[in-house]
Simulated assay, not measured.
Amino acid sequence: MKIALFPGSFDPVTKAHVDIVKRSVDLFDKLYIGIGHNSTKPGFLSVEKREEMLRAVFENEPRIHIIAYEGLTVDFAKSIGAAYMVRGIRTVSDFEYEKAIAQMNHSLAPDIESIFIVSKPGYSSISSTIVREVLRYGGDISQFIPKEALALL
């Protein structure tokens, strides 16, 4: 069985995240969306709210499983039996950052392969960081967030 992990903060989940998930789910038998918890950096939304939003977005896809985790991502990947880690790439700077992480992960867990999915051009400017700022100052984020998640904000 091919099991993959798509890790991230998803704070909040964006249409760019959804695009990467939809384009990668058919490559695997099971895809875990792992909501990483960083104890040194408080999130904008609670982990529980992010989990609720992701469940609402993917409720009709039985191959997708949403779960929060703490600790090293490679350790979590091993614990769920994931042999693949999916990462979205929007920009050249994303590639440089993700390449460094993938190389470190490979050193820590050589049996877990990183898979990069390049975002569609229309999603390359959407990031959770920017969406959080727009949301924080009362701007309209409806064009960046899936409608199922927007309803939960």
Rank of each mutant, 00 (worst) to 15 (best):
G34K: 04
E51W: 03
I117M: 14
F28H: 02
L54F: 10
I126Y: 07
F58M: 09
V13Y: 09
K41G: 02
S39H: 06
R132K: 15
R87Y: 06
E98L: 13
K99Y: 14
M1C: 00
V86G: 08
D11Q: 11
D11W: 10
F28A: 00
A102E: 11
S107A: 13
K49M: 06
F116R: 08
S79Y: 00
R50F: 01
D19G: 13
I35Y: 05
I3S: 00
V74K: 03
I64S: 12
G71M: 01
D94H: 13
Q143N: 12
A100I: 09
I101M: 15
F116C: 07
E113G: 05
E59H: 12
D19M: 12
S9W: 04
A151L: 11
I67Q: 15
S79T: 02
I67G: 01
E48C: 02
P42R: 13
V86K: 14
S142C: 02
I64E: 08
V25C: 05
T40Q: 10
V21D: 05
P12E: 04
M53Y: 06
E52M: 07
S9A: 12
I89A: 12
G34V: 06
A109N: 07
I67T: 14
T91S: 15
T129D: 03
D140G: 02
R87S: 05
A100T: 15
R55V: 08
D140A: 01
T14G: 09
A83N: 10
S114F: 12
G34H: 04
L108Y: 07
V118S: 15
K120Q: 14
G122A: 04
Q143T: 11
P146Y: 07
D19A: 15
T14L: 08
R90A: 01
D29I: 01
L54R: 12
I35M: 04
E51T: 13
I141C: 11
S39Q: 06
L31M: 09
K2I: 01
L108F: 09
Y84T: 06
I35V: 15
P7N: 02
K41R: 12
E98Q: 11
H37T: 15
G139R: 08
Y137F: 15
D75E: 13
H65P: 01
V21W: 06
F6V: 09
S24N: 10
I141G: 03
M1T: 06
N38A: 00
E148H: 12
A151I: 07
E113C: 06
P110M: 07
Y97W: 14
A149I: 10
G122F: 06
I33W: 05
V18L: 12
S119M: 09
G138T: 09
V86R: 14
I126T: 13
I89F: 09
G88I: 09
A16D: 03
S114C: 11
R136D: 05
E133A: 10
A83K: 15
Y32A: 02
A68G: 07
L54I: 08
L152S: 05
R23S: 08
M85G: 02
V118L: 15
H65Y: 10
K15D: 04
I3F: 02
A109Q: 06
M1Y: 03
D29T: 06
E59Y: 11
F76G: 00
G138Q: 08
P42V: 11
V86S: 09
G34M: 03
K2W: 00
I35K: 05
L135H: 13
F95Q: 12
A109R: 12
G138H: 07
K2M: 01
K22A: 08
K15F: 05
V25D: 04
D19C: 13
F10N: 02
